[in-house]
Nucleic acid binder design. Structure first.
Lengths: 104, 104
DNA sequence: CAAACACATAAGCATACACTTATCTGATTC
DNA sequence: GAATCAGATAAGTGTATGCTTATGTGTTTG
C-alpha cells in the first residue's frame, strides 16, 4: 500500500514531533510552529509529506488550515505490523489477531 | 527511544523486503540475497541498519551468520503507536490498552 | 481595492543515504 | 598452511531529502 510514504514520513524526527503535537489536539500550521524553531515553508513541506502519507489531514477554515491526525495512516501501520504477529509475545498475539479481523 | 532508527530502517523498501523475508524464517545473508538483485555489501549494510534498529538479530554459526526477526523492534513500534491510541477506532482501542500494560 | 495575513510552491544548496567496487576479517576445507 | 568461502568494512558516487530565501495563491480586513 502506501507503507513507503508512511515510514518515510515518520523517519524524520521533526515530522514525528509535529505528529505528536497534533495528537494533542487539532491545530493550524502557525500554531504548530510555536516553540518549534522551524521556518514556515519547512513546516508546510513537512505537513505535505505527513498528509500524503495519510498520517494527517487538513481542513480549510477561512484563511487558516486546520490540521489533525488522520487515523488512516496509523491503521495502515497496524496492518503492516499485523503481518508479523507471530513474532509478538504470546499475550500480544491475541491482539494482533483481532487487528487482522479488521483487515477488510 | 530508538524510534528514529526503527522508522529510518523501515523507510527503505529493500529493507522492508528483507525483514519480510526473515519473518518467513531465519536465514543467513547469502540465502537472503537469493532472488533479490542486491549486491553482497548492500545486503550486509542493510542488515547492519536493521540490526542496530533491533528489528533483526544475528547469530554466528560457523562461517555463516544466521539472521532472524528481533521482536524488540516491533515492540518499540507498538509502544510508539500506543501513544496515539485515542485516534484508533474504538475496537482497536482496547487492544492498545493491553499493549500499554506490557510497557514495563 | 489595497494591505495584511496564512499558507503553498519554486528554486537552490548542503547533507544523508543507498549503491558500487575494492579490500579485509574470520572460519572452513583441502 | 594455502585456497576458498561468508560476511564486514572502506571509499567513492549519484540521487533523495530537508533546509533556506524568494515568490505565488487565496482569504480577510481596513
Amino acid at each position: 500500500m502506501n507503507e513507503n510514504e508512511i515510514f518515510r514520513a515518520l523517519a524524520d524526527p521533526t515530522r514525528r514531533a509535529i505528529f505528536e503535537k497534533l495528537a494533542g489536539g487539532a491545530m493550524n500550521a502557525s500554531a504548530l510552529r510555536e516553540g518549534m524553531a522551524i521556518s514556515q515553508p519547512a513546516m508546510s513541506q513537512h505537513l505535505g509529506v505527513l498528509r500524503s502519507a495519510r498520517l494527517v489531514r487538513e481542513e480549510r477554515q477561512g484563511r487558516f488550515v486546520n490540521y489533525e491526525v488522520d487515523p488512516e495512516g496509523l491503521m495502515a501501520m497496524a496492518r503492516w505490523m499485523a503481518k508479523y504477529r507471530n513474532y509478538w509475545p504470546a499475550r500480544i498475539d491475541a491482539l494482533m489477531d483481532l487487528l487482522k479481523d479488521m483487515d477488510q
